[in-house]
């Protein structure tokens, strides 16, 4: 009991110690959530349930993408546990198919057909193969990714899981959870793994 009391009083102290700016931020955030709940219409495949935050989004949204170390660990472990690997256990597919997939940024918008193909959108944010110069810089360069890391089973497993669910390794990563949300199927993700890890892939030339 005394321990709980200490926690409560600490919470009260921190409440009073909160600068006004922070209280304003909390009020603005509450009103922002209200506005978002009110101001959208479903269109095409983009239904309103897309606005409901899942645990990752909720925690990242409430902590400016910076949860406590404890919560970060917990979130990452939960996300990692949700990764599904291909049934045959093979994690390296066809790098050429991976390149095509990495190029496509289609899918999931209200102008894309429901159930239509979703691309990997990889080049939107990453440098990958040496022949594509129109690459984004939101994420790190992946040129030479496999050359640098090799393609041991551990690296394959990590790379697969990272694409499947980036939040398994960085709780509030900017990167989508391609496998987790069903954008990419396991047999597509293995092609992206090959693009990054296959010694024959131009990424590693």
């Amino acid at each position: 009991m005394p321990k709980n009391l200490v926690v409560v009083s600490a919470a009260i102290v921190s409440l009073f110690a909160t600068p006004f700016a922070l209280a304003d931020t909390a009020a603005a955030r509450a009103k922002a959530l209200e506005a978002v709940k009110r101001d959208f219409n479903p269109r095409g495949q983009a239904s309103l349930d897309r606005l409901a935050e899942d645990m990752v989004q909720l925690i990242c949204n409430r902590t400016a993408n910076n949860p406590s170390p404890e919560n970060t660990k917990r979130l990452e472990a939960k996300q990692l546990a949700l990764v599904k690997y291909p049934a045959d256990g093979k994690l390296m597919g066809d790098w050429k198919k991976g390149e095509t997939l990495a190029q496509s940024g289609r899918g999931f918008t209200w102008t894309d057909g429901a159930g239509g193909a979703v691309g990997g959108s990889c080049y939107n944010c990453h440098q990958i193969g040496p022949n594509e110069q129109a690459f984004g810089t939101v994420g790190p360069s992946l040129l030479g990714y496999g050359k640098l890391r090799g393609n041991s089973p551990e690296i394959q497993r990590y790379t697969y899981a990272k694409i499947y669910n980036a939040k398994a390794f960085s709780a509030c990563s900017d990167m989508p959870r391609f496998g987790h949300v069903g954008a990419l199927k396991p047999e597509q993700i293995v092609d992206l793994v090959a693009l990054l890890l296959d010694p024959a892939s131009p990424v590693n030339k």
Binding site: D24, T25, A28, R29, K31, A32, L33, A35, V36, A46, R50, L51, A52, E53, V56, Q57, C60, N61, A64, F108, K167, D174, P176, R177, V181, G182, A183
Partner: peptide, 17 residues
């Protein structure tokens, strides 16, 4: 201030804000 918060609101299948 509300606009600033909306700009950081992540949701949807790709977790984008």
């Amino acid at each position: 201030a509300i606009g600033k918060e909306i700009a950081s609101f992540r949701a949807g299948p790709f977790d984008f804000s």
